[in-house]
Structures are given as C-alpha cells and as structure tokens.
Design a protein around this nucleic acid. Structure first.
Lengths: 135, 135
DNA sequence: GCCAATCCTACCGAATTGGTCCGATTAGCA
DNA sequence: TGCTAATCGGACCAATTCGGTAGGATTGGC
C-alpha cells in the first residue's frame, strides 16, 4: 500500500506546475529546480505524465510542458494512475488480468472490490488545486 | 497502490480461518487446502501473521494456528500491515524514516497526510468478520 | 524413548523499480 | 537557409524488494 517514489515525485512536480499561471511553458529543468527533484528523474516523471495526458509537451527551444486541463480537474488518483497504472489492490480487480489460480472459487473478491472502491474514492476526492495550495 | 500478492493471500487465508469455530486449531496445510493457496506460501504468510500478533501459533503434533482475537476485532488494515508494514503512502508519513531530500521544503506533505488518513480509514472500516461472510 | 507432525529460520532466483545516458526534434538566429 | 542551442523522448543498466523453496528446531503422542 505504498506508492512508488516516482509517483511521489510526480505529485510534487504537478503541484509545483499548478502554482504557475495556466498555459505557461514549464521546462523540466525549471520544475526540477523549484521542487528539488533531480533533473533526470523529473524528466522521466514528466514524460510519463505527458504520455498519460495530464501534461502537454512541446519540443525544441522554448518548449516544455503545461497542464493539459485545469488543476481542479486533475485528481490525486489521476497522477498516481499515470505513473503506476490502474489503482487496483489486487490483480483480479482489473477485468483483463486473470493470473490468480484462486479465481472463481475466491470468496473474498466481492468484499475487496468494495474496499478498493473506497480507496480509489479517497484519492479521487483530492484535486491538484488542493495540493497546490500554500499549506 | 497495489498490495503484494503475499498480503493478498493473507486476506484469503484469514477469511478462511474466520469461518471455523473460534479457538479451533488450524494447521497451515488445512487452510492451504481450503483456499487453494500453495502450502509453502501459506506457511510463510501465516508465520508473518503470527509474528504480527493476529494469529497465535502452537508447535508440535496437533499444533497449528488460531485467531488471536475475534474476527470482528481484526480489520483489513491490520492484515495488510502485518505483511507489508505500516500503511504509509510515502516514506515521510512515518515519523521515523527521513530519507527524502525534499523534507522540510516539501509543500505537499500536509495534503498527503490527509489523503493517507482517508485511505487508511477505508481499510480499517472493513472487518475480518465481513470478509468471512458467504458473499 | 522414539517417531511423526508442525512451525520457524535462512537462502536463492526473479521481477519490478529507480536512475542515467544518448539520440531525435524543434525553434531561434546569423 | 543553414547552424546552433535547448528541450523532450526512448533505450539501457544497476539495485532493491518480492516470491518461493528447502532445511532445521520443537512439541506432543505412542
């Protein structure tokens, strides 16, 4: 139940980006310096955030990243899913993967489904706008 | 945000144990057969559950495990913590570990604290008694 | 006193993660 | 119009943790 450090960095970087005026072009170097995140790591994190559609990237001189949508429309769950994949406590939650030998006879799965929804809801309830607030 | 497969197995095994009469001596082999969990894995999982105080172990012939307390007094959070350690989304949540270079200047930590409490609360709200129900 | 059953500890291979480096692309300028 | 500088994008590599296995220690029964 711990998120990876890359996801952790992603939250910090996104919060820093949200403090800038909307639409501004933010390079990985700038945000790395503001947050203290090592530059190479920031690059990787922002690349994945862009691939997930949370950031829009522009290459070349003067390029950089900007938020794909308003900070209030991005949730903590969105950021975590961008780095770690779907929020699913167990493999059997996501309908596509079926590598659990117990599937079918498992008697706790329905209950875990409810618990998973509760966790996911808690993370979706936190918006990036909230995370960017001063304190 | 995904729990390890050992923690997943622990939930299944504990739920199976909770379906037996309270106080009965349950060997790892019995529960492994009932749940479909491989025996060596079940042994390891139950050993950790005993170390965490959720199960009480007895050695020797006729020995085995039994729940340390009533199923209604054991939460999903307890089981997960027994296998994975404290439920803390980030390292900086637990007061003892301080290996984050951003600490002190990090501006999102207070918000993550709230999110972490929400997740933990969701898991503490699910009792083993509920997990053991038929469906 | 011996034997069988059971739990406990230590070890090993494998997969994911975290980090680094180099190449591809674009805008600006001479 | 060609060149340079700046930036993103993808590929590679070491390290940590996870999952599984095997052997040893302990206890109760015959």
């Amino acid at each position: 139940m711990r998120l990876t450090s890359l996801a952790d960095y992603a939250v910090v970087v996104m919060a820093a980006a949200a403090r800038h005026p909307a639409g501004a072009s933010l390079s990985a170097g700038l945000l790395a310096e503001e947050t203290g995140v090592p530059l190479p790591t920031a690059q990787k994190v922002m690349g994945r955030l862009a691939a997930a559609g949370l950031l829009v990237s522009a290459r070349g001189t003067g390029g950089g990243f900007r938020l794909a949508r308003a900070a209030s429309g991005i949730s903590l769950a969105d950021i975590i899913e961008a780095l770690e994949g779907p929020i699913a406590m167990t493999n059997c939650i996501t309908g596509s993967i079926h590598d659990c030998a117990l599937e079918g006879s498992c008697r706790v799965k329905p209950h875990l489904n409810l618990a998973n929804d509760a966790v996911r809801g808690a993370l979706q309830g936190v918006s990036l706008a909230t995370l960017a607030e001063a304190k």
